[in-house]
Simulated assay, not measured.
Amino acid sequence: MIPVIAVAHGSRDPRSAQAMAAALTALRARRPDWDVRLAFLDLNAPSVRQAVDAVAAEGHHRVVVVPLLLGSAFHARVDLPGILAEAHVRHPHLELVRTDVLGPDRLLVAAARNAVAATGVSRLDPSVGIAMCAVGSRRAGADAATAAVAPRLLAGTSWTHVRACFATSTPDVVGALTALREAGARRLVVAPWLLAPGLLWDRACDAAQSAFPDIRIATPLAAGDAVGRVVERRCLDALADSTGVLRSA
């Protein structure tokens, strides 16, 4: 059985860990030959270190590590690789296969599009305006890369209005919704480019509802089966490729 450690960000909000755990349920059913475990970079247990140590203690020689992250910011580029490098020193005979991050996979974009439609707006209504809300990043270019995902939500619909916005940077959700309304959108939806609910998402929703009481709010991406399906794809790709593998000398 192949051990797979899915690594989430972690949150003080218990709904976040619950949502990430639920997102992996369907994957376990589809891949009974995989031992899928959830670990966290911060604030929740088990930590990545604890999860890797447990795999090594059980006698496994290979583990696949999947970052449950939508972008390649600090946690993906620095934090997780550093943790895994330390783990490799502790367990030199354990092969650590690190996959790419989840986003912006087409399955997640489709899940976001479906979540917008599930709020009750028609896919044929050109007056729909979507504010795609992500966390935001201080890394140069990261927010622009996220913003590039927003137009992909329109594919296969008659929607014409979409703006990216961020919970920790600009434009914020109220600014994006204001711009959408000024551009002619009449039915406004906030779509989270977020995996799970949490405090930042709650704040964005509260601000949106205060400024636009008729706003519709879509569910985060982990609510469906898309996250599990992307994790499966990342694992299969990584197992077929030596890239990202740490081996003993």
Results as ranks from 00 to 15, higher is better:
M1L: 11
M1E: 08
A6Q: 13
V7S: 12
R12S: 07
S16K: 03
A19S: 11
A19D: 14
A21I: 15
A22Y: 13
L24E: 05
L24A: 11
L27E: 09
P32I: 12
V36A: 08
R37V: 04
R37P: 05
L38T: 07
F40W: 04
L41M: 04
D42H: 05
Q50M: 09
A51D: 10
V52N: 04
D53R: 02
G59L: 01
G59V: 06
H60W: 12
V63W: 11
V66E: 03
V66H: 03
L68K: 03
G71P: 01
S72I: 09
S72Y: 14
A73L: 07
A73P: 01
F74E: 02
A76H: 05
A76E: 02
V78S: 08
P81N: 11
I83S: 03
L84K: 03
L84G: 08
V89P: 02
E95W: 15
L96H: 07
R98P: 05
T99M: 10
L102K: 01
G103R: 00
P104M: 05
L107P: 00
L107C: 15
L108G: 02
V109Q: 11
V109N: 05
A110M: 02
A111N: 00
V116K: 01
V116H: 01
A117P: 09
V121K: 00
L124F: 15
S127A: 09
V128W: 00
A131N: 10
C133T: 14
G136Y: 10
A140T: 10
G141Q: 14
D143T: 08
D143C: 13
A145E: 07
A147G: 02
A148S: 05
V149G: 03
V149M: 08
R152T: 05
G156D: 07
G156A: 04
S158R: 14
W159Q: 04
H161M: 05
H161C: 03
A164R: 00
A167L: 14
A167S: 11
A167D: 07
T168Q: 13
V173F: 05
A176T: 07
L177R: 06
L180Q: 06
R181A: 13
R186N: 12
L188M: 05
V190W: 02
V190H: 06
A191I: 12
L194K: 12
L194Y: 02
L195A: 04
P197T: 13
G198T: 06
L200D: 07
D202F: 07
A208L: 12
S210M: 11
A211L: 13
F212K: 14
A218L: 06
T219A: 11
L221Y: 00
L221C: 02
A222E: 08
A222D: 07
A223S: 13
V227Q: 07
V227M: 09
G228R: 01
V230T: 05
V231M: 12
R233C: 06
R234L: 05
R234V: 09
L236V: 11
D237H: 10
T243C: 10
G244D: 10
V245H: 15
V245M: 12
V245T: 15
V245R: 14
S248Q: 15
A249M: 10
A249N: 14
